[in-house]
Write a protein that binds this DNA or RNA. Structure first.
Lengths: 236, 236
DNA sequence: CACCAGCATCGAACGTTGTTCTATCGTACG
DNA sequence: CGTACGATAGAACAACGTTCGATGCTGGTG
């Protein structure tokens, strides 16, 4: 079987990548169509190269996801470090959390992969550090500080996972938009027996057309209120 | 090509399943070796039947996961409904949350699939209802109740996702146990520059050998404290 | 200038997965 | 006895992650 390419001036160019370009295109694929769209073949085509070449930069798909996640966490970290800062550490914690949450809203796939990076990848650790430094300004024990940061990240990720897993494929395809999808679920809830499901009927109007950001902010405020109480209780 | 089976008294028996057995075996596979172990072929072999037969019971793998999740949520729901109940709705919320968390600790795969079922599957909706009914005993607006339940579930799932995603394969293989894995991460943290990472150094001893249950309980207490404050503030 | 080492790239192949197609079995009912 | 239908199953397909072996390119050395 004769090789057809490899003619000097005419043949197909070899692609030349870089770690940067690999991660950038990987993120682009994730942004455009979610995790299922990130395949080695799709990524290779986007880079104009072969499938196996990607393995020179990453050991496997898990590492690719880890690095891609940390790549965008880097820009989130830059946003967080650019925040003005205030006299109240809890206000700063809120601002940082909202920044992180907004980033996950913009990139729903981020929520699922963010947490497993915190212990390992550099930008994620720095983000963890920045959150934690605010707790150093509060009168807490080391254990309380550790738990406080875990709680805040838990709230962010918990809310993010909630909204990140919602689209059941038809929303992503654009066939059904998010509001009508939520409305459909709300309609099913309204069909439930009001006697057996008093709470669901109580809040179905709130659920219908609710804003995820409001939901997150409320959860965050509960945790921050508890934290402020905990810090205050220690002083007096 | 002659068919070899189908001899009357001797041939290989046809398998006869049921929705129950399919879900039970699917859960068993998930319990034994996690999500990667749940394949249609492995499930079919366990059921003693063919691969395609499973598709008579479920439309696709997503539905299989949804139903398997709701299947075990059913037993969690039974545990929750068997709880004694108290005069304080927040105490009841805590007891329910801990029950749910314990179930996810016992089945780490549950955390990843639990949330996307809440809007659709029957047992998950009932669980949502039971949590929500406790908020009906608090002096809150409908919106506050909706957000409170979302916040609590967010805390549970956020903590659960944290501990559910930790094992990076070597822990599951049994090659490395969880404590030495955490210790390894802690050692890496200790190598960081103390001047650049003051918070990480402050809490690394807490992180090393920490108990996930403590971490969850602390996060839950913060949210419940905030909730109690919110309910109390409305009365006076 | 020729040559070589090693970095970087690539096509092709392998094994496994979810899913579908089509054929078949077995039983309850007329 | 036969027929319709609930239920089962083997084989095949496309897509995926991953590996293998071979090849191109480039900078330094003789």
């Amino acid at each position: 079987m004769a090789r057809l390419q490899n003619r000097p001036g005419q043949g197909r160019r070899r692609a030349s990548h870089s770690m940067e370009s690999v991660l950038t295109e990987a993120v682009a694929l994730l942004d455009e169509a979610g995790p299922p769209a990130l395949t080695f073949r799709a990524l290779a085509e986007r880079l104009g190269g072969g499938v196996a070449s990607i393995y020179w930069y990453v050991a496997n798909k898990d590492e690719l996801l880890d690095l891609a996640t940390d790549h965008v966490i880097g820009s989130v970290l830059a946003d967080i470090e650019a925040l003005p800062g205030s006299a109240d550490p809890i206000d700063d914690l809120r601002a940082m959390s909202v920044t992180l949450f907004d980033a996950i809203v913009a990139r729903p796939w981020l929520g699922a992969y963010f947490m497993r990076n915190i212990n390992a990848q550099s930008n994620s650790i720095r983000l963890y550090e920045r959150l934690g430094e605010q707790t150093l300004r509060l009168d807490l024990s080391a254990r309380q500080r550790f738990h406080a940061v875990s709680a805040i990240i838990g709230v962010v990720v918990g809310s993010a996972v909630d909204l990140g897993q919602e689209p059941p494929q038809e929303v992503l395809d654009g066939a059904v938009d998010r509001d009508t999808y939520l409305g459909r679920a709300a309609a099913a809830w309204r069909d439930l027996d009001p006697a057996a499901y008093p709470f669901v009927h109580e809040i179905v109007d709130e659920f219908d057309g609710h804003d995820d950001a409001d939901q997150f902010r409320s959860a965050l405020e509960l945790t921050l209120a508890g934290l402020r109480l905990q810090a205050g209780a220690r002083v007096g």
